[in-house]
């Protein structure tokens, strides 16, 4: 009888319902789930900035196909992810949307040697087809705008962009991450939002208005392995991201090489 998994509790006589509920309990408990992941060498947990969602999912699929491993993602605001990693979340790889959040994790001694693997400028997301005819940042003063909250990287970048352009915008809402801003625009609740250029490039629901170089900023994405003894799968994922193959996928999703 094979007993490789912790939750494989016993002989077939144990009812499937019981085993199912035990499994559910394990999954509900982050600490336990973390243990089982760490011990399992063919799976990796990646925490990544929300703006990386589509690109990383493709990279994950690529790795799963070639190496027969399982890649689990947690996408969110980099600030949120950094905090939870410092608090002990079971991340094995962290990719941040800005260097400040990566520094936070490095300073805590949880990660080492981050490498910048991608970059993106900022852009204005508007409703599909740009029905309001938004042309530049100045137009944002007369329409409803959503930004990322200043606590998260895309919020800081947006503030820098607006400052550089000398435009003052009364945001209607400060969203927890960049995907939330995109959703507002896509749903038509908000006229425009300032997001990563890569986000607009990978979205079918919104259109992009570019921001001139003079007032634009470039977001730099670092990636690092978490912990002192990274698993082989974590290493494989990391290496795929920083490889040429990874860079090509990222480019297809609107990112630039650093």
């Amino acid at each position: 009888m094979k007993r490789t998994r912790r939750w494989d509790l016993g002989p077939p006589g144990v009812s499937r319902v019981l085993r199912g509920s035990v499994l559910a309990l394990l999954l509900l408990s982050p600490a336990l789930a973390g243990c089982s992941n760490a011990s399992n060498d063919d799976a990796v947990v990646v925490f990544a900035a929300a703006s990386l969602t589509e690109a990383f999912e493709e990279i994950g699929e690529e790795l799963e196909r070639t190496d027969d491993v399982a890649v689990t993602f947690n996408f969110g605001a980099s600030s949120d992810l950094a905090r939870s990693i410092v608090d002990g979340s079971p991340a094995q790889v962290f990719a941040s949307a800005d260097e400040a959040m990566m520094d936070l994790v490095v300073d805590e001694g949880v990660a080492r040697d981050p490498e910048v693997f991608a970059a993106s400028d900022m852009a204005i997301a508007v409703a599909k087809g740009n029905p309001l005819g938004i042309e530049d940042l100045g137009d944002l003063e007369r329409i409803s705008v959503a930004l990322c909250a200043p606590e998260v990287p895309c919020g800081r970048y947006a503030r820098d962009v607006l400052e550089a352009a000398g435009v003052s915008v009364d945001a209607r809402s400060l969203e927890p991450d960049v995907k939330a801003v995109l959703a507002r625009v896509a749903l038509g609740e908000i006229d425009a939002g300032i997001v990563y250029g890569s986000d607009v490039a990978s979205s079918d629901d919104v259109s992009a208005v570019s921001i001139p170089d003079g007032s634009n900023v470039v977001a730099r994405y670092p990636i690092a392995l978490i912990g002192d003894a990274p698993s082989e799968t974590a290493l494989a994922f990391y290496e795929l991201v920083v490889s040429d193959a990874g860079a090509e996928i990222l480019e297809r999703h609107g990112f630039e090489r650093p």
């Binding site: 949120d80 909250a149 209607r172 809402s173 400060l174 969203e175 927890p176």
Partner: peptide, 18 residues
């Protein structure tokens, strides 16, 4: 949404303050 003074209530503020 979340806007200080207009729609940011205690739980939202706690979430972002974290």
């Amino acid at each position: 949404g979340n806007l200080p003074g207009a729609t940011r209530t205690i739980p939202l503020a706690a979430f972002f303050a974290l």
